[in-house]
């Protein structure tokens, strides 16, 4: 019997290659390039969490930037109070997880669509909180000079060392997600997305699992936020608004929701493409939005589904031609007998 391995050899080889490339990348990049690469990894963590919620469990969550903000503010406020990053960032995860449960519970009791609205409204509320509670969050001025952490006495203040910290955390959380998806939990999430009522009748407690997938997604946004704050050194309410929540959903869907590497690609497109399309200026988001619409019409499975979509259209065309050939053959046969 074939031994089941975690990853195919080809997959493993590609992954190793990609990791090696990521390890050597800082040597080739200038300050801004390295900053973008680090930011990309932060977005990848957040988008991976959203992919669990949207892509694997089929829930629409529109509060991801808000959760990321909660993570970022938690870390910033605690570190300003002299608490270590290594205590503050787990706190950020726990708080986001708990908030996910609180906001998800009422919405999920009713209808899956309602979660979309509830989360959108909650994101609005979070931004109002960040902006108005000046005693805690600094209001519109935000929190400045957020230090980067030490790791057992080694300072991670430099851009390169902080990059490696983010890379390590991305890999750890990626592996955790992969393991989760392979566990019975992951299969329950997929069952939930494909047919909630069938899942329920086979004994999956849908409320508990939907709630879990949402809260775990929120926790991933929390760790992303916890890394975002020390990366940019300065946080204010703007990056955690509704429009960035929409952007996160776009990342997941454009990359390919429900595909493990979808968010990796989606985050790259949402973050790196604008850098190359600087000449479009304000028009970039308009192009981005309309492209998303076009993609949902022609390629609803996202960029990573291109191969399948192409194969499907080829198969359809082949089937169509076969049918035409058969009809033609039948017609000629008929003509021959007549």
């Amino acid at each position: 019997m074939k031994k089941t391995t975690l990853l195919s050899t080809q997959h493993l080889a590609l992954l190793t290659l990609a990791l090696l490339a990521m390890c050597f990348a800082p040597a080739l990049l200038k300050t801004y390039g390295l900053y973008l690469l680090t930011l990309w990894l932060v977005y990848v963590i957040a988008a991976m969490g959203l992919n669990l919620t949207v892509g694997y469990a089929g829930l629409k969550s529109l509060c991801h930037a808000g959760f990321m903000g909660v993570g970022a503010y938690t870390v910033a406020i605690m570190m300003k109070a002299g608490i270590s990053f290594w205590i503050a960032s787990p706190m950020a995860i726990v708080i986001c997880f708990a908030l996910g449960l609180v906001i998800g519970f009422p919405a999920l009791r009713v209808q899956l669509h309602y979660l979309g609205f509830a989360t959108l409204g909650f994101n609005l509320l979070l931004v109002l909180f960040f902006r108005n509670e000046e005693w805690l969050t600094g209001g519109t001025f935000g929190i400045q000079n957020i230090k980067r952490p030490d790791f057992f006495g080694v300072s991670l203040e430099s851009n390169t060392s902080f990059y490696f910290l983010v890379l390590a955390i991305t890999v750890i959380f990626g592996v955790l997600l992969a393991l989760l998806l392979r566990s019975p939990w992951g299969r329950a999430f997929a069952a939930l997305r494909d047919n909630p009522i069938r899942a329920e009748s086979t004994g999956v407690n849908i409320t508990a699992y939907t709630l879990m997938s949402f809260a775990i997604g929120a926790a991933y946004a929390g760790i992303a936020g916890a890394l975002f704050a020390p990366l940019v050194n300065f946080i204010e309410p703007a990056p955690f608004g509704i429009s960035n929540s929409l952007l996160f959903l776009m990342m997941v869907v454009i990359g390919g929701s429900g595909r493990f590497y979808g968010p990796v690609l989606g985050a790259a497109i949402a973050l790196l493409l604008p850098e190359y399309l600087r000449f479009l200026k304000d028009w970039y988001l308009a192009v981005f939005g309309f492209t998303a619409v076009a993609m949902m019409i022609w390629l609803p499975g996202g960029l990573l589904s291109m191969k399948e979509a192409w194969q499907l259209s080829q198969a359809k065309r082949a089937a169509g031609q076969k049918q035409i050939a058969e009809v033609a053959a039948a017609a000629t046969a008929k003509g021959a007998t007549a």
Partner: peptide, 16 residues
């Protein structure tokens, strides 16, 4: 997602 994309697109279109 399509209507969200439309929302982003229309907003940015008017802004730009």
């Amino acid at each position: 997602v399509a209507t969200l994309g439309l929302s982003i697109g229309l907003k940015s279109f008017v802004k730009a």
